[in-house]
């Protein structure tokens, strides 16, 4: 961004990068070591069939619970980012409502095994076929493809943390009351990410590739919303009675 305030010092960027990395590590749900130790544990064929034979609404509910758990960690991540809690309450809610699932999708690459196209879910590594009964193959395939493409960038935890914060602090979300305040925070985060990538001697194209992910993430989230509303149209009582309240609040 060309109109960046010249007052951001290197020290400030280093400090922000440290704060965001620490916040990420404290709230990442699963440590990298835990995930790596579990990669050999993929669901066996009979376990896959067990998920496939669950009633559609039961599997939807399970996934809604898992997404909600992951989102709660993202809320904690946001709260620890310098400046986030200084935004007005309206904007904190707007940013999390729009961005928390996007960060969950980003975080998915940490729990993704590219070797066999599986993701950590419900205690083991699961391939896309585990989610067949949900009836949204397109969304599942897109989520797996996104995780795979994120993995191919080989981001460090620090870089992933800064990219997650950059997404969460998107200043173009609708209904922000203090847009310019969010904009400044996002610009600072982008500079910290840029600085980190340079420090790690990553090529310029990595940042370009990451910026391109913004629209993919938005597409994934809108597809999730559409899929949920199609499900809700058929099973309104299940959603009302059995889905986590936070999930309904965010996506209802």
């Amino acid at each position: 961004s060309g109109d960046m305030s010249p007052t951001v010092s290197m020290d400030e960027l280093e400090h922000l990068a440290q704060n965001i990395s620490k916040s990420h590590m404290e709230t990442c749900q699963y440590l990298q070591e835990e995930l790596q130790q579990s990669t050999w544990q993929t669901f066996l064929q009979d376990e896959v069939e067990c998920y496939q034979s669950k009633p559609k609404e039961v599997m939807w509910q399970l996934c809604a619970v898992k997404i909600t758990e992951a989102i709660q960690y993202v809320v904690e991540f946001a709260k620890r980012i310098d400046g986030f809690m200084e935004l007005c309450q309206n904007d904190q809610i707007v940013l999390l409502k729009a961005g928390s699932l996007e960060v969950v999708f980003i975080r998915m690459c940490r729990a993704f095994d590219t070797q066999n196209n599986t993701v950590y879910f419900d205690g083991k590594y699961a391939g896309p076929e585990v989610f067949k009964v949900l009836g949204c193959d397109d969304l599942i395939t897109s989520a797996y493809d996104f995780a795979k493409s994120m993995c191919s960038l080989h981001l460090s935890e620090d870089e992933l943390a800064l990219f997650s914060a950059f997404i969460l602090l998107s200043s173009d979300r609708s209904w922000l009351q203090e847009k310019s305040k969010v904009e400044k925070l996002q610009q600072k985060t982008q500079l910290a990410l840029q600085h980190m990538l340079q420090k790690h001697q990553r090529g310029e194209e990595i940042l370009t590739k990451l910026i391109c992910k913004v629209s993919t993430l938005r597409g994934l989230c809108s597809r999730h919303t559409e899929t949920l509303s199609a499900f809700r149209a058929v099973y309104p009582d299940i959603v009302r009675a059995h889905f986590p309240p936070l999930y309904k609040e965010l996506f209802g």
Partner: peptide, 17 residues
Amino acid sequence: LKEKHKILHQLLQNSTS
């Protein structure tokens, strides 16, 4: 917005542990 997002608002209010 706060009214429609009581749980999220509550999570934001809780102190970080």
